[in-house]
Amino acid sequence: MSTPDLTTPLPVTDLGNRAAPRKGRRLRAFARNPTFVAGVAILGIVVLLALFAGWLFPTDPQDMVGPPLLWPGDDAEFPLGTDSLGRNVLALLVHGARASLLVGISAAAIGLAIGMVVGSVAGFFGGWVDILLTRLIELFQTTPTFLLVVVIVAIREPSLQTIALAIGLASWPTVARLVRAQFRSLRESDFVVAARSLGYSRTRIIVQEILPNALPPVIVAASVMIANAILTEAGLSFLNMRDPNVVSWGGMIGDSRDQLRNAWFLTALPGAAIAATVLSLNLVGDGLNEILNPRSDP
C-alpha cells in the first residue's frame, strides 16, 4: 500500500522554536476579542469624560441652570434633562464620573498596596509570620465589608478621601490572600530555587523573580476591585454618607429617590452609568486574565 502524498505543506506540531514575538501576536489576537474591546471602549469613554469634565462643563455642575425636572429631549440645551433643583443631568453625570473613578482607583490602590505587602510577606516567609498575618487577614475578612466602611466613614467626616481610604482598608484582604497563595506556590518553584542557589538576596528574589509572576491575577483582581469600590461608593452616597460638595453617581441616585415615580430617568441614568462602568471593568479584567496568562494561546 502506498500513501498518496499530501502536496500542501502542513506545519507539524511545533514544540518550541517559536521565534515570532508572541506578545505582539497575542495582543493583536485579543484586539479581535469583541467583549474585551467593548470593555476597553466603554471604560475609555468614561475615563475621557472624567478627564475632560472641567473642559466640557466648566461651570459648577451643582449650579441651578434651568427649570427643574426637564425630561431628556425637552430642551436641546439639556439633552439629558434637569433634576429637581434645575441642575444639568449631563453635567452631573460627567462630573460624577470623576468622583466615582477617583474613589474606585484610589480605594483599589490602597487595597492593593496593603494586600500585596501583607500577602507577599506572609507567603514568602511562611512560618509564624504567615500564621500571624493570616489571622489578621481572616479577622478583616470576617467583618462585613460594607459595615466596616460605614463605620469608618461615620467616625470621620464623609470626604472623598475618607471614603476611598475606608473602602481600601476593607478590600485589601482579598488581594492579600491572592498574593499569599501566589507567593507560596512560586516560592517552591524551580526557578526560585535556582535563584537561591545563585546566592540572590531575598529582596531580589521577591521583587525580580516572584513578584512579576505573581502580578497577573492581581492586576485582574484590581479591575474588579475598582468596580466594587465604585459600587460601594454609590451605596454610601445613597445612604447620604457622602461629600456634599462633590457630585457622584451614587449621590445622584440618592437625591432622586423622591422623583422615582414621576422622573425615573434621574435614577436610571446614573444607575446605567454605574452599571456600564462596572461591566466594562469586569470585561477588561476577564480579557487581561487571558492576555496575561503566559500559557493561554489566543
Binding site: D5, V12, D14, L15, G16, N17
Partner: peptide, 27 residues
C-alpha cells in the same frame, strides 16, 4: 529537534537525517 520539521515539504525527518538526499525534500 522535532521543531526543525516546520515548513519541511518532504520527509519530516529530513532536517535531522544523516542519510538525507535531495529527493527526500521533495515529497
Amino acid at each position: 529537534s522535532v521543531g526543525s520539521a516546520a515548513g519541511e515539504t518532504g520527509c519530516s525527518f529530513a532536517p535531522r537525517c544523516p542519510m538525507v538526499q535531495p529527493s527526500c525534500r521533495l515529497a
